[in-house]
């Protein structure tokens, strides 16, 4: 795993979560900024998944390969579903859905880092 990329993804996801919560607090629906940020996050997660799969194919992965693949799949799937589900709700609760995803991603990427370093 690439440390800086993972760190960047965690920071971006937390940023998205905070902005989403602010948007909910201000009683606004989803804006384009949040959608674009989610798109960037998804691209980053896909890149990370690509590197991970490449590393696993080369046999560089940790012992917990199956769990790592599960987390990788989860991180890639969550942002699009959150975007779909959040855009469909035209109220303050749309961005709140994005906030859930924004908090879930850092947790999952953090676990992936732990597994990668053999601490999990």
């Amino acid at each position: 795993m690439i440390g800086p990329l993972a760190t960047g993804l965690i920071v971006l996801a937390l940023l998205i979560a905070v902005v989403s919560l602010l948007t909910t607090a201000l009683n606004k629906a989803m804006g384009n900024v949040l959608l674009i940020a989610l798109g960037v996050l998804e691209i980053g997660l896909l890149v990370q998944a690509g590197f991970l799969i490449a590393a696993l194919v080369r046999g560089e992965g940790p012992a917990e390969t199956a769990t790592l693949i599960g987390y990788t799949a989860g991180t890639v799937v969550i942002p699009p579903i959150a975007a779909f589900w959040g855009v469909g709700e035209r109220s303050r609760w749309g961005p709140a859905v994005i906030a859930v995803a924004g908090f879930a991603i850092p947790g999952m990427v953090g676990r992936m880092l732990q597994l990668w370093q053999g601490l999990g």
Binding site: E89, A96, V100
Partner: peptide, 14 residues
């Protein structure tokens, strides 16, 4: 499933 219910659906899904 509307409004705050959507947020619950998201958390349960995760």
């Amino acid at each position: 499933g509307a409004g705050p219910g959507r947020v619950l659906v998201a958390v349960y899904g995760v």
